[in-house]
């Protein structure tokens, strides 16, 4: 019984540590604007794709 409780507590502790680490990582992404820096890097690639790879029926 004690072993089970210990295992459970150990598991919960690991979960909390992962959650805290994850939150900290996400906070780093948030605070240093890494999400927008990434999407800004994606934009030119998308623009190239629209210009070269998408067939359009352009007319009035």
């Amino acid at each position: 019984m004690m072993t089970l409780i210990k295992k459970l507590l150990s598991f919960l502790l690991k979960l909390v540590l992962i959650a805290v680490a994850g939150t900290a990582l996400l906070f780093v992404v948030y605070f240093f604007n890494l999400d927008m820096k990434l999407t800004a890097a994606m934009e030119p690639l998308l623009t190239w794709f629209y210009d070269n790879k998408v067939k359009r029926d352009q007319h009035l």
């Binding site: 927008m36 999407t39 800004a40 934009e43 998308l46 629209y50 790879k53 998408v54």
Partner: peptide
């Protein structure tokens, strides 16, 4: 759709608009 419609690229900036 993201790869079909040029205007979808602007939605990459949603969080920045809120900022």
């Amino acid at each position: 759709a993201m790869f079909r419609y040029r205007w979808m690229a602007s939605y990459l900036a949603v969080p920045m608009m809120i900022d």
